[in-house]
Amino acid sequence: LVRYRTISKIPQITLNFVDLKGDPFLASPTSDREIIAPKIKERTHNVTEKVTQVLSLGADVLPEYKLQAPRIHRWTILHYSPFKAVWDWLILLLVIYTAVFTPYSAAFLLKETEEGPPATECGYACQPLAVVDLIVDIMFIVDILINFRTTYVNANEEVVSHPGRIAVHYFKGWFLIDMVAAIPFDLLIFGSGSEELIGLLKTARLLRLVRVARKLDRYSEYGAAVLFLLMCTFALIAHWLACIWYAIGNMEQPHMDSRIGWLHNLGDQIGKPYNSSGLGGPSIKDKYVTALYFTFSSLTSVGFGNVSPNTNSEKIFSICVMLIGSLMYASIFGNVSAIIQRLYSGTARYHTQMLRVREFIRFHQIPNPLRQRLEEYFQHAWSYTNGIDMNAVLKGFPECLQADICLHLNRSLLQHCKPFRGATKGCLRALAMKFKTTHAPPGDTLVHAGDLLTALYFISRGSIEILRGDVVVAILGKNDIFGEPLNLYARPGKSNGDVRALTYCDLHKIHR
């Protein structure tokens, strides 16, 4: 019993810090008490220290592992850092350059016999395009090294910054494609005289377009951006097909006994025919423009016929181009109408809503002055909100995010209106959640004399007048207030005048 009563005193000691020596009952000389009392004092002292730490809000209350900052290894790049964003855009520009100039170089340097010394005699450094290609190869190699040090988000939505895990993730992902696209074939085969082989191998750079397509997928929600990307894709495919079309004609031209190829026909049409040795002929500019003209006309199913396939190889390629053109029509131009419709969806919704308003007016036989006010209010409210119901949009977000959005939407009023000066951010967040926005066209009466005042109004834009009878008592403008002081009276009061809008007004109100 003594032991039980001794232990039962522990909660009292913990909360009230009572010393055991003052209790005459606990001072009985028993061996059990002498053993338990020192333990009680020690526990009391420890609990006292913990309570003191909690009340003082000291940093040592938290466990040590929670006080440590997340460790980022040296030379690790955050995937959302500004440097990584700028670097990704730079790589994107280099990939676009590669997609345009690599097929052009591979096709127009394929057994090209233009006048001038061969590239091997001039030297590697004197070729501007080769120098640019070398810079692109170096940048792609540097990009691989950067990807080995860039964080990523795993399946659990955690940012991984450990170098080993980053390397394994990159090896399992895009490393092989990036490595093949970054191989400097110019340096590996330079001086061997195989410019045709170098041009063909350099087309491996186009593998990076797969990554670019995935990154550009984030802009699919913007109709104008999608339309622009589709047109660029169409032009890029036409450019690639033009390079292939020229390569076919250029390879067949020296081996044909009869002059029936499209390059021969082009030379005869523009007065620059090929001679018996295969030299001469149109310039590279004429060849490229004509090839691009043929691919565009074939892809769009126009086909004027002034550039036509004559050999079997050219006919087979033309059939493939027609098939590609039909697929592009289905996948690209078939979506253009939907994209344009999405661009004008706001206008369509406006006309639909206006039609419903006019049908309501016609069905209920609203008189002319009231009908005009109804239409003007709808037009003004639509121009202010673009038909978007803010309350319906915010309803799907958590309250903390709703408060931040409301604070942002009402920031101008909260910053410049005098009653809100000096208020804490928590108070402003709470008030912003209570605001209701209303609009009024010129001549609209917001409050009639004798109406119950259940709200306090803040003028965000425009001006109003307060009338008693036919006498203008006051004219209020931006950041002015009218209405009933909230919670100042037990019952809502009545208006002693009319409140009429002089201009288009936007008002925020808080109800009782």
Results as ranks from 00 to 15, higher is better:
residue 158 E to S: 09
residue 247 A to M: 10
residue 335 N to V: 03
residue 154 N to T: 11
residue 278 G to S: 04
residue 95 V to Q: 01
residue 321 V to A: 01
residue 181 A to K: 01
residue 369 P to M: 03
residue 177 I to P: 08
residue 364 H to V: 02
residue 287 K to P: 01
residue 284 I to Y: 01
residue 327 L to C: 03
residue 158 E to H: 10
residue 143 D to M: 01
residue 223 G to L: 04
residue 396 G to I: 07
residue 304 F to G: 01
residue 312 N to P: 01
residue 218 R to E: 05
residue 429 R to E: 01
residue 137 D to A: 06
residue 121 E to F: 07
residue 250 N to A: 14
residue 404 D to H: 01
residue 296 F to Q: 01
residue 247 A to F: 13
residue 89 W to P: 01
residue 442 P to C: 03
residue 396 G to E: 13
residue 266 L to F: 01
residue 72 I to S: 06
residue 233 T to L: 14
residue 368 N to L: 08
residue 211 R to K: 07
residue 409 L to M: 08
residue 267 G to Q: 01
residue 338 A to P: 06
residue 118 P to C: 04
residue 421 R to L: 08
residue 306 N to V: 01
residue 82 P to T: 07
residue 285 K to V: 14
residue 228 F to S: 09
residue 419 P to S: 12
residue 253 Q to Y: 06
residue 409 L to C: 03
residue 189 I to Y: 11
residue 439 H to N: 08
residue 282 P to S: 03
residue 258 S to R: 14
residue 356 R to I: 03
residue 172 K to M: 06
residue 200 L to N: 03
residue 76 T to H: 03
residue 73 H to Y: 10
residue 113 T to N: 14
residue 185 F to Q: 03
residue 403 A to E: 12
residue 368 N to M: 08
residue 110 L to A: 14
residue 274 Y to T: 01
residue 244 I to G: 04
residue 100 V to F: 01
residue 375 E to V: 10
residue 348 A to K: 08
residue 395 K to N: 05
residue 309 P to L: 01
residue 446 L to T: 01
residue 73 H to R: 12
residue 229 L to D: 01
residue 217 D to H: 05
residue 260 I to Y: 07
residue 374 L to Y: 01
residue 258 S to M: 11
residue 437 T to D: 07
residue 137 D to E: 15
residue 115 E to Y: 03
residue 115 E to I: 15
residue 68 Q to D: 05
residue 175 F to L: 08
residue 108 F to Q: 01
residue 97 Y to F: 03
residue 211 R to C: 01
residue 257 D to E: 11
residue 200 L to M: 11
residue 218 R to C: 08
residue 435 F to L: 09
residue 301 S to N: 04
residue 448 H to K: 03
residue 420 F to R: 03
residue 347 T to W: 14
residue 179 M to K: 01
residue 182 A to P: 01
residue 127 Q to H: 06
residue 216 L to R: 04
residue 245 W to G: 01
residue 291 A to R: 01
residue 346 G to F: 03
residue 345 S to M: 13
residue 68 Q to M: 15
residue 344 Y to T: 07
residue 404 D to F: 01
residue 229 L to V: 05
residue 169 H to Q: 11
residue 120 T to C: 01
residue 192 S to Q: 11
residue 349 R to A: 14
residue 120 T to W: 01
residue 190 F to L: 11
residue 165 R to H: 05
residue 348 A to L: 15
residue 257 D to A: 11
residue 378 F to M: 12
residue 198 I to T: 12
residue 209 L to G: 05
residue 65 Y to T: 07
residue 100 V to K: 01
residue 310 N to Q: 04
residue 120 T to P: 15
residue 169 H to S: 05
residue 192 S to P: 12
residue 121 E to L: 09
residue 124 Y to T: 03
residue 275 N to S: 09
residue 139 M to V: 10
residue 143 D to P: 01
residue 304 F to M: 04
residue 298 S to R: 03
residue 251 M to D: 01
residue 386 N to L: 07
residue 236 L to V: 04
residue 327 L to R: 02
residue 141 I to N: 01
residue 432 A to F: 05
residue 347 T to P: 04
residue 377 Y to K: 01
residue 375 E to L: 11
residue 448 H to Y: 14
residue 338 A to T: 04
residue 79 H to E: 05
residue 294 F to S: 01
residue 225 A to V: 09
residue 238 A to W: 01
residue 105 S to W: 11
residue 250 N to Y: 13
residue 150 T to A: 03
residue 167 A to V: 05
residue 292 L to Y: 01
residue 66 K to N: 11
residue 379 Q to M: 04
residue 290 T to Q: 01
